[in-house]
Write a protein that binds this DNA or RNA. Structure first.
Lengths: 136, 136
DNA sequence: CAGTATCCATCTTGATACTG
DNA sequence: CAGTATCAAGATGGATACTG
């Protein structure tokens, strides 16, 4: 059986693992609150800044700006400036970005399939915590 | 082509999406810093608390305790107390937990395959940012 | 052994205002 | 239009000490 998933022991502990493991440095892409949503909004093609703001209603300019800059820095999104007046900037998923969406989709699929299980488990746990200990 | 991944528009904006989308409430499992590592440490079978501490060297008791409690609450891990002296507590992945590891593996695989691309993109981006050095 | 309690550092998110 | 700057708040992570 395959038991190598995180394989922390070969790194000498979790702390060392976090430091040494290159893939781990990349995980921020998927743990970020907005990255996935922004990438999803780019699936249909290039989008302008305020276009994204409208689609993703609820993000402040700052957060959208930050998210896009991080995605650009990680090579998941390209930023193209057209030197017109007024300025026109388009964001578009790269190949790498599209492949990343695949992972996002896998996460989303699991969440969709099992959300009810998890929510039920949470309710059961919270109710157990409120009740006194049942005698055996 | 499938373009329905986050499908934010059908929710009326990202803010509403985050509130209404049940799967989204479950994503914390994968965005947590330690959950994946702890679940990985449970792949080989049940583990005791301090056993996990040794495997995951670097976690404090508090963080391990918190992580395990969250995993238990979400139904991914069971906690079994043996009323011996000294106390013996064992943690074990549930079926749901094992299926969650599958997602973690997908994330890890992508990260492993593309970490170098992302790291290279970051370096390129950071170097571009340093170029236009203007004298003060 | 298996935790809790406390206190603090940091990181992320966000509201608001301003700019080329 | 497409951003940046500033400040504040909250979540998260962690070091240390104590307990049944």
């Amino acid at each position: 059986m395959d038991t190598t998933f995180p394989d922390i022991r070969s790194f000498g502990g979790a702390a060392a693992f976090l430091r040494a493991c290159k893939p781990r440095t990349v995980l921020g892409i998927f743990t970020n609150k907005w990255s996935g949503l922004v990438m999803g909004a780019l699936l249909d093609g290039p989008r302008r800044f305020n276009e994204l703001r409208r689609i993703l209603d609820g993000l402040t300019q700052k957060v959208l700006s930050q998210t896009l800059r991080n995605l650009e820095r990680d090579g998941l999104v390209t930023r193209t400036v057209y030197p017109t007046i007024p300025p026109r900037v388009e964001y578009e998923l790269t190949e790498l970005g599209h492949s990343g969406v695949g992972v996002l989709r896998a996460i989303g699929d699991w969440a969709g399939e099992h959300a009810d299980d998890v929510i039920a488990a949470r309710q059961a746990y919270d109710e157990r915590a409120r009740e006194p200990v049942k005698p055996v």
